[in-house]
């Protein structure tokens, strides 16, 4: 299948600090993908590289088959909504749509007007005076007016209240159903991710920890409960992602590469959220009782 976004050992450095390193991933067309990870994991850096706002320090990024940096032909087909939906706050929605028409070769102003009319957004009010939810809808309508083949959204709903968040995702899902646009959105809200996305990329400490189709990832992971594990390999288990142990019992979240048939282990399904969290938690929590002056 065609890839809308492809990276190979992609890296970006700010000073001596790598914000993204050895990032290799492939996003097939037609997916709604989630980019998940803690603050500072490199999510915005990856999105900025994909939309050509910054240039890689290592490796390659290809969007719709081509490097996006200084590439107007590619960028004309990519929609981007940056974090906190920055818009010229003194402009009205109508003015922003007109401006978009001047700046873009492909521009469907009617589509944008229809969307905002459906949502009851006032056309003549400066967007700085709109509610956060309405401003996010204006930013989305502007990004969709390009009729993009790939839509990139950086934390699109993070600052919205639950109702505005639901309305934003409704508009987004309706548009995707209409156009078949591929979407990559970063989010902290795992419940939204589970509802909306069929592809997942987990970033942690500037690196890709997990990537793939949600259905595949969920079926490949299992929770095993059994006697305390001594580190011996378990047939059917490719990797122990996370384990917790009592003196006689171990609970392991594992990635499988076959059926786990050892009768010592009881197998349980895991939800997507459990899988994501298991990859975000570092192996062992570092305690610092001494620093707090409390007994361990």
């Amino acid at each position: 299948m065609e890839a809308v976004l492809e990276t190979d050992q992609l890296g970006k450095r700010y000073g001596r600090q790598w914000a993204l390193r050895d990032c290799t991933l492939r996003l097939p067309a037609g997916r709604i993908a989630a980019l998940v990870g803690p603050n500072g994991a490199g999510k915005s850096t990856l999105l900025h590289l994909a939309v050509g706002l910054s240039r890689p320090d290592a490796g390659v990024v290809r969007v719709l088959g081509e490097p996006p940096h200084h590439n107007p032909a590619v960028l004309a087909q990519v929609g981007f909504v940056a974090q906190d939906t920055p818009l010229y706050r003194d402009f009205t929605a109508t003015e922003l749509i007109t401006m978009g028409g001047r700046l873009n070769r492909r521009w469907d102003a009617t589509l944008a007007r229809t969307r905002l009319a459906d949502l009851g957004i006032p056309p003549g009010k400066p967007v700085g005076k709109l509610s956060g939810g309405q401003r996010a809808q204006v930013a989305l309508a502007l990004a969709l007016a390009k009729r993009p083949r790939l839509l990139l959204l950086d934390e699109p709903v993070a600052s919205l209240d639950p109702l505005a968040r639901r309305e934003f995702l409704q508009t987004l899902m309706g548009s995707v159903a209409d156009t078949g646009t591929s979407v990559l959105l970063s989010s902290h809200l795992l419940a939204d991710v589970e509802r909306v996305c069929d592809h997942l990329i987990v970033l942690h400490a500037a690196q890709v920890r997990l990537g793939g189709a949600v259905d595949d990832l969920v079926t490949a992971h299992r929770r095993l409960v059994g006697p305390r594990h001594d580190g011996a390999p378990i047939p059917g288990v490719a990797e122990i992602v996370r384990g917790s142990h009592t003196d006689r019992q171990s609970t392991l979240l594992v990635r499988t590469d076959g059926p786990v048939t050892d009768p010592l282990w009881t197998e349980h399904d895991v939800a997507l959220e459990d899988v994501i969290l298991a990859y975000l938690v570092d192996g062992e929590t570092q305690t610092n009782h001494a620093a707090w002056g409390v007994p361990a």
Binding site: M173, V176, V196
Partner: peptide, 16 residues
């Protein structure tokens, strides 16, 4: 219709 379900429930059209 797929679009209506996807929009009303805010879910991925591929799920429908």
């Amino acid at each position: 219709k797929v679009r209506e379900v996807a929009q009303a429930l805010a879910i991925n059209p591929n799920t429908v």
